[in-house]
Write a protein that binds this DNA or RNA. Structure first.
Lengths: 154, 154
DNA sequence: TATTTTGGTTGCATTTTACTACTTATTTTG
DNA sequence: CAAAATAAGTAGTAAAATGCAACCAAAATA
């Protein structure tokens, strides 16, 4: 019995998130979609993924509404897979992951692909967890509020 | 031939990051470690993961220096798996993932576990990608600088 | 000393993944 | 318009990952 995908009722949202995009390929597909890929064959060639696996991943991403399958082409049979808002909302996750990869596993040969913003042309700074006033938070600064009651600022 | 873990030279740092933590269990183990789990049996019970798989994942996370295996206990055979700096640095990734899960896959029954910071007691705001001046960036605002030359701000 | 806990290991059944070849419908080209 | 090429899958098979349960030895505990 491989993979426990079944537990969609895990109380932890990290687990539920990983259920949808927690396998090796899904986030790479989303990344590729963010880079502009839309067609089945684009994904297939750029990722070097097996076709049957790609079919499975794409349809699962469509099911979970990370992507939507759009029928382009005059009489059916040309499709595009486009990011939904839910899919685009993975942007901070992927940027954070990219930065982590760049920091801790730089590619031996070449310099990392730098993400820049169009307005300023400057590199995108590291994604941080900030508090309500914009101050950086580390792991030790936070806790999980189990009972989740409303609280005033201290 | 399952899983293409082999390509550690993928030029994309997202792919390299996913090689280390891109499977279903690894990020959950890191999450659990962030919640305070340290012992083999803690992880095993809390995650409900098979023991042989846990052995494999833990040793791989140790290899990639996301965790370190510390010998506690007087004469060997009591161990703790603790986050390294590299592991703790996954904090933004996990927070972003958690928030994504909360937003798009709220758990039907109960309210989400809220992350708060010790100082203010307030919920941790959503993780965002910001530009150098602290303005939020969306997916459409950024591009990948392939040739990666130095540039002035525009 | 006897028992329990910890941190595994081993064997086997099931599920995923990968690779390759094949298929059908739709464009594109000649 | 016919032929070739492309797009988007299917299908079959082999290899690998996963899950489960049973087993094991060292250390801690009673």
């Amino acid at each position: 019995m491989a993979k426990k995908r079944i537990q969609n009722d895990d109380p932890c949202s990290v687990a539920r998130a990983l259920q949808e995009v927690g396998d090796w390929w899904s986030l790479l597909i989303v990344r590729q979609a963010m880079f502009g890929s839309r067609r089945f064959s684009d994904f297939q060639q750029q990722l070097g993924i097996a076709r049957n696996i790609l079919v499975d991943r794409l349809s699962r991403l469509v099911e979970t509404e990370v992507l939507k399958k759009v029928d382009v082409g005059e009489s059916g049979r040309r499709y595009e897979y486009r990011l939904t808002e839910k899919g685009r909302d993975l942007f901070p996750v992927l940027v954070a992951l990219r930065q982590w990869g760049d920091r801790w596993n730089p590619c031996p040969g070449q310099p990392p692909l730098v993400l820049r913003d169009h307005r300023s042309g400057q590199p995108v700074p590291r994604v941080q967890v900030l508090d309500a006033r914009g101050r950086p938070l580390e792991l030790v600064d936070v806790y999980v509020d189990e009972d989740n009651s409303q609280q005033d600022a201290g």
